[in-house]
Design a protein around this nucleic acid. Structure first.
Length: 151
DNA sequence: GCCAACGTTGGC
DNA sequence: GCCAACGTTGGC
């Protein structure tokens, strides 16, 4: 079972949106970066995902969600009214993928980015590397445990 | 709001 | 295939 990290803006979809409806399934769509998409496509049911809050007041890892549906074509890419519409994508040859997430838990405290940056063992995690913009990334078992121990 | 770093696009 | 221009991300 693999581990991942996904960025989100809490204004859009943060851990509280999951916590408010713990039994519901939230589609993770709108990923429009090839590298991130390739990671999305590798996700499988029961994989766990750190939910990271970006572009907000309290930046850092806020909680854990899990994959409840393997990757499928992101419907937003075909919707001309969606901001995620991609005119170059067709149902026959979809370009973008989505997965479904469900709530696991909110961490008892948010682990801030500057703390993650100073943690030994996370040097390889793209999140803490300068200028990195990858929004979906794999997390090794060691990295996962290192982060959990900070809770 | 600023701006550095990055990814993508498109002309050549 | 190169690379300048552009748009976006995301921390500060």
């Amino acid at each position: 079972m693999a581990k991942w990290l996904a960025k989100s803006e809490p204004d859009e979809c943060g851990i509280d949106d999951f916590a408010q409806s713990p039994d519901s399934v939230i589609p993770w769509d709108g990923v429009r970066n090839y590298q991130a998409r390739n990671f999305l496509a590798q996700m499988a049911v029961d994989d766990e995902v750190f939910l990271y809050h970006s572009s907000c007041k309290h930046i850092g890892i806020a909680g854990i969600v899990k994959v409840v549906r393997d990757a499928y074509p992101d419907p937003a890419q075909f919707n001309a009214n969606s901001p995620y519409h991609d005119p170059k994508s067709t149902p026959e040859k979809p370009r973008w993928q989505a997965v479904d997430f469900a709530f696991v838990k909110k961490l008892p405290r948010l682990i801030p980015l500057d703390e993650l940056k100073s943690l030994p063992g996370l040097e390889q995690l793209p999140l803490v590397r300068k200028g990195n913009r990858l929004s979906v990334m794999p997390v090794s078992e060691e990295e996962w445990q290192t982060i959990l121990q900070q809770v």
